[in-house]
Design a protein around this nucleic acid. Sequence first.
RNA 1: GUGGGUGUAGCUCAGUUGGUUAGAGCAUCGGGUUGUGGUUCCGAGGGUCGUGGGUUCGAUUCCCAUCAUUCACCCCA
Length: 404
Amino acid sequence: MIQALRGMKDLFSPENEKYIYFIENCSRIAKNYGYEYIETPILEETALFKRSVGESSDIVGKEMYQFIDKGNNDVCLRPEGTAGVVRAFIQQKYDKAKVQKKFFYYGPMFRYERPQKGRLREFHQFGVESFNQANIKEDASIILMLRDMLDFFGISYKLELNSLGCPDCMPTYKEKLVEFLQNEESICPDCKRRRDTNPIRVLDCKNKSCQEIYKNAPFLIDNLCSTCSDEFEQLKKILDKFIIPYVINPKLVRGLDYYSKTAFEFVSDNIGAQSAIAGGGRYDKLVEYLDGKPTCGIGFAMGIERLMYLLIMPQNKRSGYYIGALCEEASEICFDLAINLRKTDKTNINYDIKSLKTHLKNADKQNARYCLCVGEDELAKDLIWIKDLENKAEKSISKNELLG
RNA sequence: GUGGGUGUAGCUCAGUUGGUUAGAGCAUCGGGUUGUGGUUCCGAGGGUCGUGGGUUCGAUUCCCAUCAUUCACCCCA
């Protein structure tokens, strides 16, 4: 038997309904915030991710589905969504036009890792990207939007906030941190590796003895330049005003190299070790990294599978018709009936001749609102028997009334 | 890439201290005298016990390998 690749899942009921429900409502809310839908290719040139996500990240280092295609191009399946949208933005010359653009997208992402709870090799994200909005209010808006979405679905969360600084304050901080780390030889091997590759990352090491040491480490949040520091204060004020509870997590670093300034993560305690349900932040230099004109940007992405663990669907109401024939002679009229009803309503037909009892059972199981049956009695009088499964009312109506 | 758990019916799982026809619940199908559902009663079908090898008179059970799956680490949504 051929089965789906490791870490890749088929989507059946009821998850498929959840997925649609999630996408539809996130899209609706994003549109309210002025976002428009964008779809970018799932396959992109490998260099795009190397330059945006960053060579030092694990994503690029070991998790990409990368291969050489028949035209000898080095390509890979997108591991995240922002890079593609930024590439599209630049390719469309929106950077030169200096326009403000806001996009939302959703779809599959691919990372070659060992699957576990809340982590698949093919997973789905819903994300948004806002270009050319430097105002800190936009940072707040994007967090407010995410709050709206999670609130709509009744999903509880914790918001963690940090500032990663800008090219003015980040490099000097980094030097300070590396200096601190030079004197700490008792840190774990992973952290020693990070010290060289990506020093900021040591801060969210899960090793307890490391965390003990980092209590005394310098934090970026205490070393921001005046601009970054002011903006961060403004952001907190807006979030306070709109009553969004948050915690400042000075150890919060985003995994992708392109982030700067505002960084945030929405986390949940109820989905296993992979607790981040959404993450995002500013990336004011990314457009330049990808050869565009300087254009600031901010965005986030939600892990749809992780959110679906937490999402409870509203009760499914009975809807549509179920049609069944009670005798062979009635099967033709039943088929005609189905064809006609399908022009306006969800209609399922059972081609098998069954007893009324069986048809009612089936209609009930399918959660149909109405059960329509035709037997010898109805055929004789050109009637259709119809029962409302919700209020149990039943009647026979003339065939012409339903066949129009 | 590293470590642990688990593979028995469509699903969720019992079980055999190694012994002859492997069980339950749910689901499916049929029936409960002529055409009435969701919470009834009765019955039926369905499994080479993940795969390959080893030990044994005998393996679904013990051992090894392999594959799949799951959880965790690394990392991330």
